[in-house]
Design a protein around this nucleic acid. Structure first.
Length: 574
RNA sequence: GCGCUCGUAGCUCAGUUGGAUAGAGCGUUUGGCUACGAACCAAAAGGUCGGGAGUUCGAAUCUCUUCGAGCGUACCA
């Protein structure tokens, strides 16, 4: 990496300067204490190191330190300059050529870190009830989760993606009861959901169960007396139907889970009871008011939690504890969960339970995501109001998979996301997705123009290609020998931006952030557009043309690579 | 009341471990297509970083306090 190269040069120089006694009273230097940064003013250079922190031990002024260090640097064809306590660095052509060479050799693997510690990670996200269609909030976890999985895999981790199906508990009964009403309606009975607000909460009155009722009658054509069939039959039918609908949507949204883990199977396998017993054995359990409580407050939780209700059934938490224990027993080094911020109260109690059972709670990493506000015509439509609930399906149909995925991922997970439907739909500069995709299409177009015959827009005559596709392949393979046209400012800047992809992957993966990739592709596209507008690619000078075509190819490759991490397509034409 | 996440340009947001003149996109204003895609580019205007106090050579960043927003505070899931 460019940063490492520069830092190493400076640190080596410092050590030599210390040895030569040129750094005042400084007697030794510990590597890794100086940060590399990007200069605020790009005229200063590509990278910079502030050596002011050495002033304390050297006892000389920062500019003198910087100058002394630069004396000892092996500069090769790079430029070093000193301003105040800063040592600025400007990369020479050989380093820039090395960046392009690396891209041409590694292609879609470019940016994959080497020599990093990797883990076996289970990433859990969405984990919705199978009681209805996803709403837009689920879309955020879907987009961020699957992009994060792509990123962590690219980093080198082994990533297992899991969806926990909340298919146990009272909401399934509620679903079954609601289906019964819809089936009766289909059969012509004059019946509706209760109007009383409190009673109505025992049902899912949404229209989405109407097609389910139709499907039910198709598969049970001889139904005479609806109430004569066991409620469980309706529950199972509706649950399976909704699960199928959810999975189809995820597939369409390019979200791929390795496993859908059913909470019900967890109960049936006895793992939940086993977990309760283990907790009892840990001694952190007591009974009160007929219920069994877990002393989670001993582990940092605000208060104790019920593990087994007075009626003998387990709480949701109990199953969740068993689920996380099961994850650990499956041999994962790390569990990462994406949860909505409305579940934040759960973090302490799940961690507490893991600790009580003798597991390391730090293996559980919970990414709390703030919710999504839909903006329609400038007005916020708050989530949670079931009346105005917009389903994820509707949203994707309206704005497309690419724009939905991009918009859902483009903000830091801990800020509330405003999803502006009108903006996401526009195909103009107001919409970053199209801006970025346009840059890719433009790059592809340039390469087409160079390698295929095209027509002059004025004369209508055919223009012969600069090279054949074969020659282009060869050019890309020996990209290092073509640097004639890269010395201009915007070409340099574009190469440097391509190089930033490498440190970006490392920090983004380590911080579990995907919005940084969204920002990067926008910056990269902007750099390309500037390059395009300032610098001609196909010129009369064949060597200049070759080097710039190679740069365009490298840009297109890295951009497509970045977009694929986000699950967004990189179109050749638009 | 308590807990969590926040508060940065008109709007939506970045800001790495505390370091150079606090950045980007949109919006606004101005300019740029007789050669590779103008779905683009170049430039300008726009800020008491919610307020106050403290720590530091240095604070958007750390501490305290205060105001404001969202979410949570179940023997629901």
């Amino acid at each position: 990496m460019l940063r490492d190269y520069f830092l190493n040069k400076i640190e080596t120089a410092i050590e030599e300067a210390v040895k030569a006694g040129k750094l005042g009273q400084m007697s030794e230097y510990h590597r890794g204490t100086l940060p590399v940064e990007k200069p605020k003013n790009p005229d200063f250079g590509d990278l910079a190191i502030n050596v002011s922190s050495l002033a304390r031990s050297a006892r000389i002024a920062p500019p003198a330190i910087a100058n002394a260090i630069v004396e000892f640097v092996d500069k090769e064809d790079n430029e070093y300059s000193v301003i105040g306590g800063f040592i600025n660095f400007k990369a020479g052509m050989s380093l820039l050529a090395a960046v392009l060479t690396e891209i041409s050799q590694k292609k879609s693997e470019y940016g994959k870190p080497e020599n990093v510690e990797t883990e076996k990670i289970i990433l859990e996200y969405i984990s919705a009830n199978p009681t209805g269609p996803f709403h837009i909030g689920h879309g955020r976890w879907a987009a961020m989760g699957s992009s994060l999985a792509n990123l962590l895999k690219f980093y080198g981790h082994e990533v297992y993606q899991e969806f926990y199906i909340n298919d146990a508990g009272s909401q399934i009964q509620k679903l079954g009861r609601s289906l019964v009403i819809r089936v009766k309606q289909e059969l012509g009975e004059d019946i509706d959901f209760p109007q009383d607000e409190i009673e109505r909460k025992n049902y899912y009155p949404g229209d989405y169960l109407i097609p389910v009722a139709k499907a039910f009658l198709q598969s049970h054509p001889t139904v005479q007396d609806v109430d004569n069939i066991d409620l469980q039959v309706y529950c199972d039918f509706a649950k399976e139907y909704e699960e199928r609908v959810q999975r189809e949507l995820l597939d369409n949204f390019k979200v791929k889970f390795d496993k859908f883990y059913s909470e019900l199977t967890l109960h049936n396998s006895g793992k939940v009871d086993e977990c309760v017993n283990k907790l009892k054995a840990s001694g952190k359990i007591y009974e009160q008011d007929g219920a069994v409580w877990f002393k989670s407050s001993d582990f940092g939780d605000d208060q104790d939690r019920v593990i087994k209700k007075a009626d003998g059934s387990n709480t949701y938490l109990t199953a969740d504890i068993a689920y996380h224990v099961d994850k650990l027993e499956r041999g994962f080094d790390r569990m990462i969960n994406i949860w909505g911020a409305d579940h934040h109260g759960y973090v302490a109690r799940v961690k507490a339970s893991l600790e009580a059972l003798g597991y390391d709670p730090d293996k559980l990493e919970i990414l709390l995501g703030q919710l999504v506000n839909l903006v329609i015509n400038g007005n916020e439509v708050r989530m949670g109001k079931r009346k105005n609930m917009v389903t994820l399906d509707d949203l994707i149909e309206e704005v497309g998979v690419d724009a939905t995925r991009f918009w859902m991922s483009m903000r830091n997970i801990d800020t509330t996301l405003d999803f502006d439907i009108e903006l996401a739909k526009t195909k103009s500069d107001e919409n970053p997705v199209f801006y970025v995709q346009y840059a890719h299409a433009r790059a592809c177009s340039i390469i087409r123009n160079a390698t295929q015959e095209r027509l002059d827009t004025q004369t209508g005559k055919a223009i012969a290609p600069v090279m054949t596709p074969d020659e282009f392949e060869k050019l890309v393979a020996r990209i290092d020998t073509h640097i004639a046209g890269l010395a201009v400012t915007y070409a340099r800047k574009l190469v440097l931006k391509l190089e930033e992809f490498k440190p970006l992957i490392v920090t983004s993966a380590q911080n579990r952030q995907v919005y940084t990739i969204c920002r990067y592709v926008q910056e990269l596209a902007a750099e390309f557009h500037s390059f395009y507008n300032s610098t001609r690619v196909i010129t009369d000078d064949i060597e200049v043309t070759k080097s710039r075509l190679a740069l365009v190819w490298a840009f297109k490759t890295v951009l497509a690579n970045s977009l694929s991490l986000l699950g967004v397509t990189a179109p050749e034409r638009m």
